[in-house]
Nucleic acid binder design. Structure first.
Length: 572
RNA sequence: GCGGGUGUAGCUCAGUGGUAGAGCGUCACGUUGCCAACGUGAAAGUCGAGGGUUCAAGUCCCUUCACCCGCUCCA
């Protein structure tokens, strides 16, 4: 464990300079801008050698602790060892997958901006007051006139999700009426079908019966300049409705047309749900169990921002843990707590990490519980940014895919149901509930970098990265104090030994150039936890010095103990 | 999408219309030998990009791209 001293000048969260962290990331080859020599491309970042290895270490730690040896061998709430299996599902799935998951529909709300007040709202929430007819006009005629008035601009507008709400707003909000020049307004009783709402209004000297309905799209598109703003009543302030396509569209097939349109996934989870039945049918897994998937996802973020935090291409590590509905709350709590513990175990141990349970009104309609593991990034401070969401998704996803695909996705549980005379159980058929710990690997890397970044002016190397040894991209470095007198040979031998033992976990470096202090400083910036130096005494008594990155302290250990020392500190 | 800021060597930055610069870093050689040591030398730049004004543009104007900050958005 790397000690992050809470009293050190830069460990207190948000006061770390993001500019300096970004500069170090580039200088040492952690993170580069994508397509840098062409000027970069908005929302995309590449990893350099150290960053790529570091992210691999994070992904492998996840895989080890979630798939191969879930929860470090800990027992789940059912008293048994937690069992998980991996899948690797594709970035491109059948387009219907995204209809079933709700991503396609949900992503496509056209938005309108008020250029003056800078307010943005969903276009279909813009409700207009259309003049339908004067007082006393027969309802039937009024309706006919209103119908033919489609495409006509409304007298005034408000933002509300339904016509009913809009009428309420118009009637209740005095200020609104004043701003809009309405002298009097009364709601008529809703029509029996309640689909159309009418009010009687006086605007200026005109008395009229008006219909309240959403401003039709053709009106907004072609005559946006004439539609009054819902906030100021002014015309010409509204933009045309703009579609925010958060899904990445692509074409499948070399000669494909729009008919072959597909989407790049916005999350890996759906690939898991779609393969749930195949995994159950072929793998001898029994509920409760999890299916994990790591991989790249894409979202056309409205505003990519904050270094790699909100990128358009990012990697997720998601687990979908399936269980009986009765046990789902217990598993939810179990995973929520373990995931928090896990992030702590790899170096996010301070106050900068929190577990935040979502409020009821924050929850998706299908979720009965969601928690975020959040980190206080320098750019979110004093607030926090999400690293991982642990969601209780109920049976929402399997239900959706069952409905859209027409394939039964329920599970026959032979450990449940009444006990039969022969001692076996009758069994129970049910749609499993699902707990989803979904982590962002790129956000994880960024959090680990921010947490590790330390400035200590009292040191000869004031800037250092205090990575947890498990995450550090460089595991160890070997330095011959002098590049002569037999030291390089001993160093070469030690380097070979360490490379053989630890080379699969990360880089092992050897450096004979320049002063020893400069070599230590280089390794500090790269976050290498231990440096082994061969000096004059090594040749006499077969001992080397080990320098600890975080303390700068040195101890002498026997040359043949180096391997054991590193195994103990770094793991093999 | 709006507003503000930034963009010159790998990094930090200077350069207010007249020859492209410094420090650090990197590399080579030498000296040194346990904490960014010293000397000598070298490499490294489409001054973010495109256009314009001008005898002359890193510098002034326009457009554009990227990043940062604040709004907005965030299934």
């Amino acid at each position: 464990m790397t000690d992050s001293n809470p009293s050190s000048p830069t460990s207190s969260s948000g006061d770390k300079p993001m500019d300096a962290i970004m500069a170090l990331c580039k200088r040492r080859g952690f993170i580069f801008q994508a397509s840098d020599i062409y000027g970069g491309i908005n929302g995309f970042w590449d990893y350099g050698p150290l960053g790529a290895q570091m992210k691999k270490n994070l992904r492998e730690a996840w895989w080890q602790d979630m798939i191969l040896n879930p929860c470090w061998g800990r027992k789940g709430p059912n008293g048994d060892r937690v069992r998980c299996v991996p899948v690797e599902t594709r970035i491109i799935q059948h387009p219907k997958v995204w209809e079933a998951s709700g991503h396609v529909g949900g992503f496509n709300d056209p938005m309108v901006d008020d250029k003056e007040t800078k307010q943005r709202f969903r276009a279909d929430h813009l409700q207009g007051l259309y003049q339908a007819g004067g007082f006393g006009e027969p309802l039937a005629e009024m309706l006919a006139r209103a119908a033919s008035a489609q495409g006509v601009v409304p007298l005034c507008t408000v933002v509300a999700s339904t016509s009913g709400e809009a009428v309420d707003q118009l009637v209740k909000t005095r200020k609104l009426q004043k701003d809009l020049g309405i002298r009097a307004i009364t709601a008529r009783a809703p029509l029996t079908d309640a689909a159309r709402m009418f009010v009687d209004v006086e605007i200026g000297n005109v008395k009229a019966c008006c219909e309240v309905l959403a401003v039709p799209m053709p009106t907004l598109k072609d005559r946006a300049g004439e539609v009054p703003s819902p906030f100021t009543g002014k015309k010409g302030a509204l933009t045309e409705p703009r579609q925010f396509n958060l899904m990445f569209k692509t074409i499948v097939g070399a000669t494909g047309t729009e008919d072959d349109a597909a989407y790049l996934r916005p999350e890996t989870a759906q690939g898991i749900f779609v393969q749930f039945k195949n995994v159950v049918d072929t793998t001898r897994v029994k509920i409760p169990f999890g299916i994990g998937n790591t991989g790249t996802s894409f979202r056309n973020e409205v505003t990519p921002r904050n270094f790699t935090f909100r990128s358009r291409e990012f990697e997720q590590a998601e687990l979908e843990f399936f269980c009986h509905p009765d046990e789902s709350q217990a598993w939810y709590a179990f995973w929520r707590d373990f995931r928090m513990e896990w992030w702590k175990s790899i170096g996010l141990a301070g106050d900068n990490l929190i577990l935040r349970e979502h409020d009821k009104d924050e929850l998706s309609h299908y979720s009965c519980g969601t928690s975020d593991v959040e980190y206080r990034f320098p750019f979110t401070s004093p607030g926090f940014g999400e690293l991982e969401g642990i969601a209780h998704r109920g049976d929402y996803d399997l239900t959706q895919h069952q409905k859209h695909s027409g394939v039964k996705l329920d599970y026959f549980d032979t450990t449940r149901g009444e006990t039969l005379p022969n001692g076996s159980r009758k069994g129970e058929r049910y749609l499993p509930h699902c707990i989803e710990p979904a982590a962002g690997l790129d956000r994880g890397v960024l959090a680990l970098i921010c947490e590790a970044y330390t400035v200590d002016p009292s040191r000869p190397s004031p800037e250092l990265m205090k990575f947890h040894p498990r995450i550090a991209p460089i595991k160890a470095a070997v330095f011959p104090l002098m590049d002569k007198e037999g030291m390089p040979d001993v160093a070469e031998k030690l380097y070979d030994d360490l490379f053989a033992a630890f080379g699969k976990t990360g880089f092992i470096e050897m450096d004979a150039k320049q002063s020893i202090g400069k070599r230590y400083a280089r390794m500090d910036e790269a976050g290498c936890p231990y440096c082994f130096t061969i000096d004059g005494d090594t040749l006499k008594d077969q001992t080397v010095t080990v320098r600890d990155r975080d303390t700068g302290k040195q101890e002498r250990i026997a040359l043949d103990r180096v391997n054991g020392f590193l195994t103990e500190k770094v793991g093999a």
